[in-house]
Design a binder for these strands. Sequence first.
DNA 1: GAAAGAAGTGAAACCGATTTCATATCTGTT
DNA 2: AACAGATATGAAATCGGTTTCACTTCTTTC
Lengths: 349, 349
Amino acid sequence: MPCIRQKGATMNITELAALAGVSKTAVSRYFNNGYLSPEKRAAIEAAVQATGYAPSEAARGLRTRRTRQVGVVMPRLSSESTARVVDGISLVLADKGYRLLLANTANRPEREVEYLDTFRTSGVDGVIFLASIFTPEHRAVLKSMHIPVVIVAQQYEGYNCVYHDDLGAAKALTELLLRRSGSRPAYIGVTARDRAAGWARREGYVQALKEAGLAPRADEMRLSGFHMEEGYEQAKALLADHRPGSIFCATDSIAIGAMQACREAGLQVGKDVLVAGVGDSAMGRVTAVGLTSAHLHYKTSGQEAAQLMLKLLRRQGAGTRSICLGYEILERESTLGNMKPYETNSIAP
Amino acid sequence: MPCIRQKGATMNITELAALAGVSKTAVSRYFNNGYLSPEKRAAIEAAVQATGYAPSEAARGLRTRRTRQVGVVMPRLSSESTARVVDGISLVLADKGYRLLLANTANRPEREVEYLDTFRTSGVDGVIFLASIFTPEHRAVLKSMHIPVVIVAQQYEGYNCVYHDDLGAAKALTELLLRRSGSRPAYIGVTARDRAAGWARREGYVQALKEAGLAPRADEMRLSGFHMEEGYEQAKALLADHRPGSIFCATDSIAIGAMQACREAGLQVGKDVLVAGVGDSAMGRVTAVGLTSAHLHYKTSGQEAAQLMLKLLRRQGAGTRSICLGYEILERESTLGNMKPYETNSIAP
DNA sequence: GAAAGAAGTGAAACCGATTTCATATCTGTT
DNA sequence: AACAGATATGAAATCGGTTTCACTTCTTTC
């Protein structure tokens, strides 16, 4: 009499083998494309169809030391750019049968190290790291990992990186502001400890100024946080001191806060004062005055990072690889001045 | 002479036990709070500190049948509401030592079923399901899962759910539009197969009309997709037919598209035509005319779902539980008419 | 002071797969 | 006809933990 499995219990390879009338080795071969006669293959297939059996990932992982899981460490999910990157990663990985383990550090850098360590011990096959700042501790933990690591949005020598041309984008936008306003743009940015959004974008601004024969001035450069409100405060302070003809902001959120401050100061954005941001956020496309920004290919960077990870997991290629993605300047009303727009504020993509 | 492990190799419990001079049973007890003398505990602690040893999750999971992983199935990450929910989930789960396995269905419902099945076999301890539509296949797969399931953003009898009062929010907003405009609001929504964002919000609109003694009219109710562009198109068509005094939109994205269409038709939003949406998106807070919307507690719903999941994993409480979260109406300029605002369009939260 | 219970211990069985190994049966080549 | 190589097979070892079990020692309790 056949043994009926209890509800809730899962069948194992031995039982399935018995059901199909083959050895468990044969069943294992069925799932791993080993030598197997067509007859056995068919018998196993039928048994699998009938029972819905699937091999235990835990047992498989124990023996093979591969979990088919990739860990992703990120500062926070509720940020448009991060969400887009993770979206890109998940699409590519899922396609290749990898699962994605998420670690949300909620903007606490100490947690980044903690999670990297969790991943090291919990047996993921690789880690994709959406870094913001990079401390010696980060370096130490990354060194101690014996699995592939890909860093997204930041460039670090000796690591596999997928990043954006933050400097180029910032420089191009600053040049645009210079041309359109005919005067020195001010700057509102974030901490330089964030080498991409902080340092590189500021450096782009500085280089553009210098190449125009202008020396950057500390009182025209302000440090803000990532939130709209902080951009608003810094812009307010800036407008109280000087009255810049234009403001380059390191992120769209800051720029949107800045535009609000300008409006409240009685200035017409896009005319009296020009504003540009970076990131091409959904918000910047629907503001009162459309925000000029640089589109960074976030989703693509996630996809590229995942592709790179897959290559590393297949042990393809030696050494580390760096992929730099470009940018695209989208000019909207916030920098029009008296010129014709390159692109108007439209809801079309 | 002590055996030096090769680089890249991980130590196992037997080796650590040897190093600490105890049995592997003792080491296991160390990590699972079993009977253990203080002396042995100290010896093991020292060995763990020295080597950085951590038990293999695969081996542990094989024996215990618990992975400390919770699967999350969601339609897409690059949506503000979804990202906020997942953010909430991850915060609570991480805090309790659970890891989060992400399945991004990229808006393809057939993938939802596929991923639920993957989770069933890959040994997660529980599944949180951010459902949009619910087919018989969904029901079948969910029935066949012998692990806890929590459904977020939708309410289904017989399942553990955390959802929003979509009907109430829609009704309240429609009533607000009725009061402010003094005329019949039109409606732009999404497919009723989505019982929360589609059916419930439409029902809220219909109920508000009926209670005001008005019969809903099919030609004033239009079906849109979730994208801004589709809201724009539907609003354009609506404005070509009638000229409604106000439009209630099932989502903020649709509403923002609709506002754009109104503007292009030469109508002043908030005066000639009132517009409201649902979701309190970041975009709606920065539009030319601030968008009146209902704040839904997305992050909280993620946290509640995770809490509920933890309870289920601890086998606490019998039967299923449903948690309904409220809403908060945020009135901005898009519905002002000639009234004083309840809340002005400010960048403050 | 005997019995009952709690605390502490390690050998061995066990979880469910993959991989090794020894062996057998087919091809196609010399 | 002998041989090499590819195909096919299943018993047994293995991965690294947890759990069971049999047993010892130390407290309480009556």
